[in-house]
Design a protein around this nucleic acid. Structure first.
Lengths: 113, 113
DNA sequence: TTATAATATAATTATATAATTATATATTAA
DNA sequence: TTAATATATAATTATATAATTATATTATAA
């Protein structure tokens, strides 16, 4: 079996990291548009450090990227490479959270956490 | 957010259960053909109770089904329903373990665990 | 019937994980 | 400068998970 498990390990790790409700929500939100940590903290029901730690895992897995702008750090999905077919497929089937972000936009974000 | 999280929870649980190297291997093997517990135990490097426990989780998630034949229990993938798009996509992209099973067939299975 | 084989379940243990609180770092504004 | 904001990291705690060993259950064979 060992000859066959390398790819399986890679996939298993991908699914394990995405297989968490908080990270899956973050991931789905970032599919809509890039968001800063304070927006994610505002949207989800966990603390800011928890968000940062989840983002670190997603970054280690190389599925999100960050962009620094002043004191804010904006995260977004990293475009999957051509050979990352499973990741692509997962992203395609993610639930659409556009409406959840519309609510955020309407009330106007207050980044005071 | 709560209005949007039901589907996310379902997906997160699916990915969490499949996001384990042992279960991902079992799942990939069952994609090739149905296998009894003793064959899976023979192929993988964990104990028979561990295999049974992983199979139970996969069955709880409703992604595998079982068929009893004498003292053997054969497991196979449950055909995903039309609306289970993400599961379908994952199955499609699973690594092909046909060769690993050929080796098993050649040496002739000895179900003495 | 008794023994053996295949599988499942229970109990236990060790490890991993997610969350919180506390604190550090960096950036901007007063 | 000093204060406040945004984010990251560290330490801790509570919980979940995967594995093992031991045992139970069921089916077949001697």
């Amino acid at each position: 079996m060992k000859e066959y498990t390398e790819q399986i390990d890679i996939y298993a790790q991908l699914l394990k990291i995405l297989g968490d409700r908080t990270r899956m929500t973050i991931f789905s939100l970032l599919k809509v548009r890039e968001l800063c940590v304070c927006e994610l903290t505002d949207l989800l029901e966990v603390s800011q450090p928890a968000i940062s730690q989840h983002l670190r895992k997603l970054k280690l897995l190389n599925v999100v990227k960050e962009r620094k702008n002043g004191q804010w750090v904006y995260y977004s999905l990293r475009e999957p490479k051509e050979n990352e077919r499973m990741l692509k497929a997962i992203i395609e089937h993610l639930p659409d959270l556009t409406d959840a972000l519309k609510e955020l936009d309407q009330k106007g974000i207050s980044c005071k956490i």
